[in-house]
Simulated scan of single mutants.
Amino acid sequence: MERLKRKGSHTVSRLTFHIVWVTKYCYQILKGDIQVRCRELLMQICDAENVSILKGVISSDHIHMYIEYVPKQSVSYLVKQLKGRSSRKLQQEFRKLSDLYWGKHFWGVGYGVWSTGNITNELLMILYIVSVATS
């Protein structure tokens, strides 16, 4: 993988992290059209927030993303944007989700995040293969 560097007027950075979050109640709902639309929404949100998606997997009940972001952004802000915007749009577009997830909460509370300073491509591929195989 090519190493990306973000340059500012006085800085150079490469900040990456691996993030995982689940659907509420771990329902296996991210399939078919919902999975495709979720992927599109996450890509749009990342574009709007100047975030690069390096790798990603949408399993039936959870999301894995390996992303690069700029220093002025916080991880919690990015997760809030990813979960909040995607939840709202998915529930607007797929009415069956609103019936299934009363209270307007599509994603489970919380998330897991790991900085990836020295992680290798091989290790990431193993993580994604295990994730896909177990979903």
Rank of each mutant, 00 (worst) to 15 (best):
R95H: 13
E68N: 04
A48H: 10
M65S: 02
H18C: 02
G8H: 00
F106N: 04
I19Q: 03
F94S: 11
E49I: 01
R39H: 13
I58R: 05
H105I: 01
K24L: 06
D99L: 12
L90C: 08
R95S: 15
L78F: 02
V51E: 00
Q44H: 05
Q28F: 02
V51S: 02
I53M: 05
F17S: 03
Q28A: 14
R95G: 07
G56S: 14
R37K: 14
W102V: 12
D61I: 01
S52L: 10
K7Q: 14
S98V: 10
S13V: 00
V20I: 15
Q28N: 12
D33H: 10
H105D: 07
G103N: 02
E68Q: 15
R85F: 07
S9M: 10
S76R: 07
S52G: 02
Y101M: 06
G32K: 10
D99K: 12
K31S: 09
E40R: 09
F94E: 12
V22N: 10
S59V: 10
I34E: 03
S9F: 08
Q73S: 13
F17M: 09
I58V: 15
M65Q: 11
I19D: 03
G108L: 01
H64K: 11
H18N: 11
H62P: 00
E93N: 08
R88A: 12
M65Y: 04
K7W: 09
Q73M: 06
R14I: 03
W107N: 05
W102H: 08
G108R: 00
L42D: 02
W21E: 01
Q28P: 04
S52I: 10
K80P: 00
L90A: 04
V79T: 04
Q28C: 10
I63K: 00
V57I: 14
V51G: 03
Q91V: 07
Q35N: 13
L41A: 09
R88S: 12
R88D: 13
Q73H: 11
D99S: 13
M43V: 12
C26I: 07
E49S: 08
E40P: 04
N50L: 05
V51Y: 03
Y77T: 12
C26L: 09
H10V: 09
Q28K: 15
L90Y: 04
S74E: 09
Y69M: 07
W21I: 02
Q44N: 11
E93I: 03
E93D: 15
M65N: 01
G32P: 10
S87T: 06
H10R: 09
K104A: 13
K104Y: 09
C26V: 08
L78Q: 02
E68T: 03
K104R: 13
S76C: 01
D47M: 04
Q92I: 08
H18F: 15
S76I: 00
K80L: 10
K7A: 09
C26P: 07
L30I: 10
S60I: 12
E40S: 14
W102D: 09
R37L: 11
R39C: 10
S86V: 02
T16Q: 13
A48M: 08
R39M: 13
V75F: 00
E40I: 04
R95P: 06
G103F: 03
L30Y: 06
G56F: 13
V70Y: 06
E40D: 14
R95A: 15
D61H: 08
K72L: 04
G103T: 06
I45T: 08
S60K: 14
C46N: 04
